Amino acid sequence: MSLPPRNPDEILRARGADSRPAARFEPYRTEREDDGWDIPEDQALLRTEITQERARSIITRNTSPDIPFDRSLNPYRGCEHGCIYCFARPSHAYLGLSPGLDFETRIVAKPNAPELLAAEIGRRGYAVAPIAFGTNTDPYQPIEAKLGIMRGCLQVLHDWNHPLSLVTRGATVMRDADLLGAMAAKGQAMVCISLTTLDAELARQMEPRAPAPATRLRMIRVLSDVGVPVRVMVAPIIPVLTEHELERIMQAARDAGASAAGMIPIRLPLEVAPLFRDWLERHHPGKAAHVMARIQAMRGGRDNDPRFGKRMRGEGHEADLLHQRFRLARKRLGLVREAEVLDCSRFSPPPRAGDQLTLF
């Protein structure tokens, strides 16, 4: 898949992608053509657009054997962090938008998520189990600081004593340390902080609007200080570029307060592969062929292997060595704590005005 050329009329500042490849479901492609008029176009800075969606439902169910939860919630579509490797980019195709620049500049927010959440978990017959956040796009991307949708969802789950797990790299999670700490004290919350590299310059290239590595270590410290179990997610691991940092990342996270660790080799599903290849050629042309050869060595000779049981782990000699290094470092650093078993036994509707008080 070849990518369209960059729009010369757009000024890109801190963006991961460089163009707008058409979404895979679109029947047409657009191309720029010179109309013959020697009139320069005005350049404009490409800014993030936020639109709001009145969602009809909010909890997504899954039966994937690769992931340890059966339900999730995503307050936003798209993600301004702009991580070039993000496996969620192809989801923007369902909106008729490009997984490239559109994914990181055209964000859809769901402001009614908290009220929908309360309605769905309050339905008769609802069977409680932990809800996972951050499974597709980051619930703590920059706009959350203004909209507070994730804060509203947390408040609902706190009031209902409903457990949750959370994956993020967004600094706004520290704003909600009070709620997360209160829930963790009852065994109802755990947080995974994604930390890809300790190299600030590389992070700026790969994750242009995500917090710097030092900030993510501070997030681990802030959350662990209020009693929240924090797992560092060294994900994705990218051969040549970040794999040599595996042990150092784990040690830095342990020193900041992390009690467990996880690791996932890079995945390049659908439109992500050509976007990542283009990014490599722009930022690391001398390493591009080596990086892709090493990725393919873990993915059966392809850019991506979508098979259950393989997509999160990879296979072959390269993947086996990577997992062996991870296991040894995890044991040496004491990051072997198993996944938190979150308490579902306290789940109940919050008290309302006029409710009869209980005797016990």
Rank of each mutant, 00 (worst) to 15 (best):
D9Y: 11
I11W: 05
L12T: 05
A14Q: 15
R20T: 13
P21H: 07
W37Q: 15
P40F: 08
E41P: 07
D42P: 10
Q43Y: 08
I50C: 06
E53F: 10
I59S: 07
T60L: 14
R77A: 13
L101E: 06
V108M: 04
A113K: 00
P114R: 08
E115G: 06
L117C: 02
F133K: 04
T135L: 12
T137E: 09
L147W: 00
G148F: 00
C153M: 08
L164Y: 14
T172Q: 15
V173Q: 07
D178K: 05
A182V: 02
K186V: 03
Q188L: 03
V191I: 07
C192P: 05
L198I: 12
D199H: 12
E201P: 02
A203W: 12
M206F: 01
R209E: 04
P213I: 15
R216L: 15
M219P: 10
L223K: 13
D225Y: 03
V226H: 05
L241Y: 05
E247S: 14
R248V: 05
A252W: 12
A273K: 11
F276C: 09
A289N: 03
H290R: 14
H290F: 08
A293M: 08
P306V: 10
R307Y: 00
R311K: 14
E315T: 09
L321H: 06
H323N: 04
H323Y: 08
Q324H: 07
R330E: 10
L333D: 02
L333K: 12
G334E: 02
A339I: 04
E340Y: 02
A353E: 08
F360D: 13
